[in-house]
Write a protein that binds this DNA or RNA. Structure first.
Lengths: 349, 349
DNA sequence: ACGTCAAATGACAACGCTGTCATATAGGGG
DNA sequence: CCCCTATATGACAGCGTTGTCATTTGACGT
């Protein structure tokens, strides 16, 4: 039933080693031979056995995704993106949810390496932005890719897929400014997230460029949660001179802001514009639907996976040195403004 | 660094086969020997190599989770539950999102079996309730567990973890009745889901038991989406004699109903009670927070995984026949009523 | 003390593949 | 046409475990 390398070798009339060479894209195989083998492979629908490969080779055919994120939609998108790349290249995905509060990741990482061979890991925030984790991964000699907010890429750009939070926040703010808003409230995400700072920076930059003075009373601390969105919006709307627009650091907070507005009988978007960030399914279920910034998570994941796989592969010397193998891998994403119904012109006043 | 079975054998002063026997819980090992081996295992932190096991044995140490569900929270819960069981028992999880619209699952299932050995699969709705998929899984001789709405368990109870939708819906409806509601609207989920019918049945049963006549105008077809919740609630509230409570088939629809109510200036829960189902994160982000039925998804997943593993294991004859190995595995769950703020006494009238 | 037999243990091949190293083969220069 | 060399191919040994089957051990009855 399941054909092995031996079957292929027999059918192609070569040794199993030659088959191995072909399926691993190693050099030193005559084109004619390569074709014979490929034909046999196709006829038999041969697929190399992963367990055997992992056992025999120095390379591994498994990568791990390390995460701890309460946002299920984000994780699912990540998984799907990585899975796509893995499937295409014959790798396996090991998913590894962990807890960023306790320090167990480090140990788990070690176990992962010792226990089953892992070719590389994809780290998502907050692990991707935690120095101790990064250090350990390096120490273990693992190939890795970090998905991070641009600010956290530092001198490690080669191993990062960046998300340009400040750029996207700039765009969003600019969108509001262009609609005549001059007083724009900003609801911050959690202090500990790098993205929080990036988004705030983008907001500030856009105001500065538009010549609008920063007003600290309009910047409210928060923590990426619905409740903090409600609270923040209430605070803003209670000001003597309330803003005509609110930029919430993510969709969940924006949904909270929307509710606060409804509560206080403020019409959206006629009296107040509200925008979010992330384009989570949330943003389509509020009413009105949220203007937000779309973050192509599964595309990001696909690129991250492709990047780790290339890293892992390039270490295997027998590999034919393909020149620009990283072609097509986008390393910096800027979430795109998505105008929906929760934002509009500033009230005539 | 990474210790192998050989290291353990050497340290314990036995052959590797004996070590193998011990770690696989096979009979015919003297207690004293077993202890020696276990000591060595612990001292060396020995973990059997999965690739080798998969390669050598007839058993496999990988199970797959097959799913196609837009609800990311549900999937994540499932994954976490299964992962917990797997980790505890030294298995690996292969996640396999698929598309229920196209018929590719069947082929993918075949590939899964041929390609990498898989000990068993956990099927979630809708695959778990699709006959062609179930048939194929059986044909492939795979061990499987289906997570299904009770109605779909038929004569296959041994392979099912059931969720008692009708029972939970009964409880929810009863809760409303006990608060004096006599006219209760029901927003249906999608026709194609078995759970839709189960939930509706529970609603009907509760009314019947309370001696409340069924009124077809109060039962609105829908499809488990926010929009359909909005539409359904609007329709109900527009009736000449509108209901005093609305039972939405899931939280998303309930959120929609909440919005429709706000729109029409209906106070919740003073003028109208609204309840959902599922206890998704949604239900805590609406305002007021939703009364709903809590479905312990990760617990369900844990049991499902334990069940497949037991099945897979029992086929290995060398296994010491542990009597009631399925002890502790719950095979029928009834989601539990969770009263929050969106439901209350029927208006005095 | 001895034979008996089930229970306990071990030797060894095999799983499907890759890495190493030896061997064969094809061109190119004399 | 032969030798040399680079290139192409193959033989074979592992990787860490389990399955099979042979061998040893110990408890028991005599």
């Amino acid at each position: 039933m399941k054909s092995t390398i031996n079957d292929v070798a027999a059918r192609a009339g070569v040794s199993i080693k030659t088959v191995s060479r072909v399926i691993n894209n190693e050099p030193s195989v005559r084109p004619a031979t390569r074709k014979k083998v490929m034909d046999a492979v196709n006829e038999l629908h041969y697929q190399p056995n992963l367990a055997a490969r992992n056992l025999a080779g120095t390379r591994s055919y498994t990568i791990a995704l390390i995460y701890d994120n309460p946002n299920a939609y984000y994780i699912i998108d990540m998984q799907n993106g990585i899975l796509e790349t893995c499937k295409a290249r014959g790798y396996e995905l090991l998913i590894h949810p962990s807890n960023s509060k306790s320090d167990t990741v480090i140990d788990e990482l070690r176990a992962l390496v010792e226990h089953s061979k892992v070719a590389g890991v994809v780290l998502t925030p907050p692990f991707s932005e935690t120095q101790s984790v990064i250090d350990e991964v390096k120490k273990l000699g693992l190939d890795y890719v970090r998905i991070v907010s641009s600010g956290a890429a530092e001198g490690d750009e080669d191993n990062c897929i960046q998300v340009d939070d400040s750029g996207a926040a700039f765009d969003i703010t600019k969108h509001l400014v262009e609609h005549g808003h001059r007083r724009i409230g900003f609801l911050c995400g959690g202090e500990e997230h790098v993205s929080t700072h990036g988004r705030l920076d983008g907001y500030k930059d856009a105001l500065r460029q538009a010549g609008i003075p920063l007003e600290s009373e309009l910047i409210i601390p928060g923590e990426y949660s619905f409740d903090s969105g409600v609270a923040g919006a209430k605070a803003l709307l209670a000001l003597d001179n309330p803003p005509t627009a609110i930029f919430a650091s993510n969709d969940e907070m924006a949904a909270g802001a929307l509710f606060a507005a409804r509560l206080m009988n403020v019409e959206i978007p006629q009296q107040l514009s509200i925008v979010g960030f992330e384009d989570s399914p949330f943003s389509r279920q509020t009413w009105p639907k949220l203007t937000t910034a779309h973050q192509p998570n599964s595309e990001i994941a696909k690129c991250a996976a492709a990047l780790v796989l290339n890293k892992a592969r390039s270490k295997s010397s027998s590999e034919s040195a393909s020149a620009n193998k990283d072609a097509g891998i986008i390393k910096k994403f800027v979430p795109e403004l998505l105008v929906r119904d929760s934002s509009g012109d500033a009230p005539a006043n």
